[in-house]
Amino acid sequence: MSAPLVSLNGIQKTFANGTRALDHLELAIMRGEFVSLLGPSGCGKSTALRIIAGLEQADAGTLTFDGGRPEIAFVFQDATLMPWANVFDNVFLPLRLKGLSRQDANASVMDALVHVGLADFVTSYPRELSGGMKMRVSIARALVTKPTLLLMDEPFAALDEITRHRLNRDLLTLQADLDMSVIFVTHSVYESAFLSSRIAIFSPRPGRIVETITVAPTGARTEEFRRTPTYLEACGKAAHALELAMVGA
């Protein structure tokens, strides 16, 4: 059995204002896995994600990457695009920050845009796009560095249900095509069951993982998956575990 891509051991985090966000968090993500962090709002899921990304430092515990820090990409709840830059320049940003010229980056940027189906919108500005399209640009920007680990913080929470379902399916296809590990923060039981190979249930603050539910190996899933026993069982288990976690608080 190979080593996990990321492991968090005994991670603790208390904010300067005294809020205890994480308490002894234990989590390991294997290569190619799609893990959802599911829990109530404000339970420290986002903090865990930010610690993995290196945007926040843990007070105690260790964060280990197998074979050094992998290429990490982050997708926020809002599309977080630069409103003054067009679609191309927004997706180009990570490569630009790494010192690539526009010409050298062109193929990678176009490739990422093709993956999210926005190759025709390179010169559009974020204001001219719908919420779902903005989120696609945001995903393309994350993909442009060919990350091995994709961190997503409730990326589809603000979208309507039909758009969210479509993006969920597309995300699974992308994950399979690009061979990424994904850590996906959500507070939706259904979303986590549809997307994940594994669901980690968080307790309310201070967050720790109270239960882990294995769904099924990932791969492209269709809407059909929502009617399978695997999905329904995962939904039931996750909802029940979440309920217990809330009561236990």
Binding site: A53, L55, I72, A73, F74, F76, T80, M82, L93, T145
Partner: peptide
């Protein structure tokens, strides 16, 4: 936007890149 600042940090943007590509626009 604090998320954009995080994004710049994630990709290791230099101080000058932060000013030129994020803060000034």
């Amino acid at each position: 936007d604090h998320n954009l600042r995080d994004l710049f940090d994630l990709y290791g943007a230099s101080r000058w890149q932060q000013i030129k590509l994020l803060r000034l626009p």
